[in-house]
Amino acid sequence: MSALSDDRRLHGHLIGQQGSRRALNTPVLVLDLDVLEANIAAMARKAAAAGARLRPHAKTHKSVDIARRQVAAGAFGLCCAKLGEAEALAAGDIGNLHVTSPVVSPPAIARLVALNGRSPGLSVVADHPDNVAALAAAAQPDAPLTVYVDIDPGIRRTGVAGDEAAVALARQIAEAPSLRFGGVQKYCGREQHIEDYAERRAAILAQTEALKGTLTALAQAGLAPPVVTGGGTGTHEIDLELGVFNELQVGSYVFMDDQYAACQLGAAPGQPYGRSLMVDARVVSANHGPLVTLDAGFKAFSTDADPPQVLAGAPDGARFAFMGDEHGALIAPGVGEALRPGEMVTLAVPHCDPTVNLYESYHVVRGDTLVDIWPVSARGRSR
């Protein structure tokens, strides 16, 4: 862009100034670079040790800058929930992009085929023969489009419903001159957030046994999938242990929002990843003893989860409650005397993916110093 973003205009001069986090206009999306880099490195080591390919999900961060760091740490490529995300990452020279939702409308298929011509390693999922036929008609044999069979894990959102349908769709893809059969995808989204590790492991064991049946049916039909992709932050340790997936689509491990922080991710106690993403807000009114008002409301956080936890800047036990689009309340005995207007409070992110989509930039910090401002490259790219 020729014009500065609003965040660059407001805060660009603060980059590199010691303590500059305290001078940011709020509410602001803050990313701890040290924790982010540690999370990226830890997941890369785990996948490499297990011999699994890592293709993290960009729907979490929508960021070319973060994608580049994941690839530099060993990721094969990135997953994208929507075609628009893939277009944004491709513009940042990120390759081996995999679109994890079906692309079905004629204008979107035209965009997909065009992207396939300029983005090496692009792939997409399909779950219906009509969609495969449309993809085959639009793609070209001299630049075949790689298509994966999407398998329904039982939530009936997307995916083929049974082994017979999986075999038929894989055969249709493999026989189309303009398509290439890439493998299968199974994403068990419902299981990712089961908080108890033993309960989550039992659920994934059942899903994995069903997936093994599908893979056997495909192999018996001469269609053994070269790549079996899926998994997520909540189940990655179990998935690596079971060894059926040879590619992992982990996403939220880079940030560790409230929803994943509530889950025991491994058999051992404790969290292997740190919380890197947060929102800084300020007190704008403090006229009542048990309550102060912050400048962060519905427009600062996703609202599909519990209200954000208070991380810093407030008395112990203070809790946040939404007070409308622009404001939130911080509630605790005596908080109105403890905090004054202008003081900063740091809040956790309840659900990272939709919260990130509310902001134009990450304000990247080391400690209390702003070190960079990264655009949310695929913000709003939901089609």
Results as ranks from 00 to 15, higher is better:
residue 279 V to N: 00
residue 180 R to D: 08
residue 276 S to M: 09
residue 198 A to V: 14
residue 197 Y to R: 11
residue 261 A to M: 12
residue 213 G to L: 10
residue 301 F to L: 01
residue 251 G to A: 10
residue 247 E to Q: 14
residue 290 P to M: 03
residue 193 H to Y: 14
residue 265 L to K: 03
residue 291 L to K: 14
residue 174 A to C: 06
residue 166 A to R: 03
residue 225 P to W: 01
residue 280 D to T: 12
residue 259 Q to G: 11
residue 293 T to Q: 14
residue 169 L to G: 01
residue 275 R to I: 11
residue 252 S to A: 13
residue 180 R to Y: 03
residue 292 V to P: 03
residue 244 V to H: 07
residue 222 G to E: 00
residue 168 A to R: 12
residue 216 T to L: 14
residue 240 L to F: 04
residue 204 I to W: 02
residue 279 V to Q: 08
residue 169 L to Q: 05
residue 219 A to K: 12
residue 253 Y to E: 04
residue 159 G to N: 10
residue 212 K to V: 12
residue 214 T to C: 13
residue 250 V to C: 15
residue 265 L to M: 07
residue 294 L to H: 09
residue 248 L to N: 09
residue 203 A to K: 11
residue 175 E to T: 08
residue 276 S to T: 02
residue 265 L to E: 02
residue 251 G to Y: 07
residue 303 T to W: 04
residue 188 C to F: 04
residue 210 A to D: 11
residue 249 Q to Y: 00
residue 274 G to A: 11
residue 163 D to P: 12
residue 299 K to S: 15
residue 197 Y to Q: 11
residue 189 G to D: 10
residue 185 Q to R: 13
residue 220 Q to R: 15
residue 271 Q to T: 12
residue 247 E to R: 08
residue 283 V to R: 04
residue 170 A to C: 04
residue 186 K to W: 05
residue 283 V to F: 08
residue 231 G to F: 09
residue 253 Y to M: 10
residue 275 R to E: 01
residue 158 T to R: 13
residue 179 L to K: 03
residue 247 E to G: 05
residue 225 P to H: 05
residue 287 N to G: 15
residue 225 P to R: 01
residue 213 G to C: 07
residue 232 G to V: 02
residue 282 R to A: 12
residue 227 V to M: 13
residue 260 Y to M: 15
residue 233 T to F: 02
residue 182 G to Q: 00
residue 206 A to I: 14
residue 176 A to S: 12
residue 256 M to R: 10
residue 253 Y to Q: 01
residue 231 G to A: 06
residue 238 I to E: 05
residue 243 G to T: 10
residue 189 G to Q: 02
residue 301 F to W: 02
residue 273 Y to L: 04
residue 246 N to L: 08
residue 166 A to F: 05
residue 186 K to P: 00
residue 286 A to L: 11
residue 193 H to E: 13
residue 160 V to K: 09
residue 293 T to H: 10
residue 201 R to V: 03
residue 259 Q to N: 14
residue 241 E to I: 09
residue 284 V to Y: 04
residue 167 V to R: 03
residue 297 G to M: 06
residue 245 F to P: 07
residue 301 F to R: 01
residue 229 T to N: 11
residue 300 A to G: 06
residue 212 K to Y: 01
residue 255 F to N: 10
residue 175 E to C: 12
residue 176 A to N: 03
residue 211 L to W: 00
residue 273 Y to I: 07
residue 192 Q to N: 09
residue 173 I to R: 03
residue 261 A to S: 14
residue 252 S to W: 07
residue 254 V to Q: 04
residue 257 D to E: 10
residue 182 G to D: 00
residue 269 P to V: 10
residue 254 V to P: 07
residue 280 D to W: 08
residue 303 T to C: 14
residue 165 A to G: 07
residue 168 A to K: 05
residue 235 T to G: 02
residue 175 E to Y: 08
residue 223 L to T: 07
residue 178 S to R: 05
residue 269 P to Q: 02
residue 166 A to V: 01
residue 167 V to K: 05
residue 256 M to Y: 03
residue 181 F to Q: 06
residue 221 A to G: 05
residue 282 R to H: 08
residue 262 A to C: 09
residue 172 Q to F: 08
residue 181 F to R: 07
residue 237 E to K: 06
residue 203 A to I: 06
residue 198 A to S: 12
residue 227 V to S: 04
residue 194 I to D: 00
residue 263 C to R: 09
residue 214 T to L: 12
residue 192 Q to P: 01
residue 274 G to R: 05
